[in-house]
Every structure is written in structure tokens, then in C-alpha cells.
Write a protein that binds this DNA or RNA. Structure first.
Lengths: 128, 128
DNA sequence: GCGATGGTGTAAAGAGGTTGTAAAATCGCG
DNA sequence: CGCGATTTTACAACCTCTTTACACCATCGC
């Protein structure tokens, strides 16, 4: 059935050297072994990965994952970020960057070993 | 999208390192010796195996094995899962995985080599 | 620089809901 | 009836998510 997905061309998928995120099955793998993510963790990761290379403001994270529109009085978001970082292990510091006062940025691993900053976002393809 | 399997008709057989399921005869073997499964147990196992690698939501398990459309107020499903796990012995924890808040997933024993593992179910076109 | 202010990191605990388990109750059929 | 299969019950165990409390760090104004 993997074949079907790919053939049907709808396989939305992020992939870099260490991490993959399957937006259909809603699962992710780190160095080929499946990550066990809770729903919220997955949603948060997927959101950041979806904006790979770009900053996602806290506001938007809260809005898209929690449905809040405003108000952040607790550390909920940060706790989830922390859990994600834990599960990303040694790569955490590379993948999830905190932009003080703004939000977070998922930074892809450059698979083609170029300059690292600004690795650009087109890491997705439609796997034509 | 699994509908395809049924449409395509007879996939007939699942097989991995330890487990086989014969969808025709409706029997299963574990390490070459026959499992004694009740009807419900077989149906549940067959359903999960049919979706090998994918999550089967509780809703669907209930619908397909019990015919409910909704409503889950008792632990019936879990009791049957438990019975299956018992009969799967030491492999239970590998084979049947619980996805919290969603359902279960049958995880095939990866025969390591990529070759036609899943015996699988011919997957052709039609896409989802 | 230095302190004030506010944002972020972290651990721990609690609430609420889901799943696991054993045992008892019920069902179904020869 | 008798017995295995199935379902229900009651509760334990577990999981996720949120909150809390506080330490730590970044930025700004002086």
C-alpha cells in the first residue's frame, strides 16, 4: 500500500538526513526508527516542519495546535517543545531553534552539504 | 484504501518470520504450530493483519468485527485484544501495538530483506 | 556594566481520560 | 444442562496534557 500512496502521488512527505515526517500516516522516523509521538507532539512537529526554515510565531503555534486565538499564560507550548526536543535527541539543537520573543524554527538537515544557514524550504516535494 | 485488498480479492495469506494467517481457511500459525483462536479472535487478528503496518482505529475494529457503528462503553474490544496477545506469547508486544486514543497496529516481523515481505496483497492502481 | 523586566527552560505534580486486567455474568449451541 | 465463547463489570494502571513554581537567559534603559 505504500506503493499506492506513492503512485497516487499524494505522498506528502518530509525527508532529510535523519528525519522523516509522513503527513498522511502522521508518523515520523528519526534515523529510520519510528518516533513515538503523542498527538500534540506530532501536530507541533508537523507544523514546524511544514514551515521548515521559517519561523513559526508562538501565536501561530498556539492557534494551529491548540486552537487558542490569544493569551499564553502557561508554559504548555514550551513543555511540548521540550518533549519534542527530547525525542529528537542529539539533533534537537539543530532542528528546533528558539527565536526569542517570536517563536521557533525548524531547521532541516542539509542533505546536499551546502551552506547550512538558509537551507531553504523546498525540502518537500511531491515525489512526482 | 484497504478496500483495494478486498476488491482485488484473494490475498489469501499473510506470512512473516513467526506468524502466518490463512485468510481462506481462516487459521493462523505461530512458529509453525496452529493457533487455537475463537471466531472473534481470528476476525480481530485478521483485521489487524490485513492492515499490517497501519493503525486500525477502535471505531473500525468495532465496526468490522462487532458491527457496531458507534458507542464503546465496555471493554469488550480490549478483552479480545488481550486474549490475542496472550496467544501471541512473547511476540505479542511486537505484533500488537496500542496507539493511545486511536486504536491498534499490527507490526509485521520485518524479514529484514526488502523482498516481497508482506506477501502482500497485490496493490495496484485505483489509489485512494 | 547593571539591574529590571519579561521570555524561555525545566521538573514535578495533578486532572482527566484511555487502556489493561481479573473475575463474574451472560450467551449460544450441542 | 454443560461448557466454551463472549460480554460486562469494577478497578488498577497508564498516558497525555496542562498547570505550577522556579531557575535561567535575553533584552532594554539607565
Amino acid at each position: 500500500m505504500e506503493r499506492i500512496r506513492e503512485i497516487s502521488g499524494q505522498s506528502l512527505m518530509y525527508r532529510d538526513t535523519h528525519l522523516t515526517v509522513d503527513f498522511q500516516k502522521q508518523v515520523a522516523t528519526l534515523d529510520s526508527s519510528p518516533m513515538t509521538l503523542t498527538k500534540k507532539e506530532y501536530e507541533l512537529l508537523a507544523l514546524l516542519v511544514g514551515y521548515a526554515g521559517d519561523i513559526v510565531p508562538r501565536e501561530e503555534q498556539l492557534m494551529r495546535v491548540w486552537g487558542y486565538s490569544t493569551e499564553i499564560r502557561t508554559r504548555t507550548l514550551d513543555v511540548h517543545i521540550r518533549h519534542l526536543r527530547k525525542k529528537l535527541g542529539a539533533y534537537a539543537s539543530h532542528y528546533i531553534e528558539t527565536i526569542f520573543g517570536i517563536g521557533h524554527r525548524f531547521q532541516p538537515y542539509d542533505t546536499s552539504r551546502r551552506a547550512q544557514v538558509g537551507v531553504d524550504v523546498q525540502t518537500f516535494a511531491l515525489t512526482a
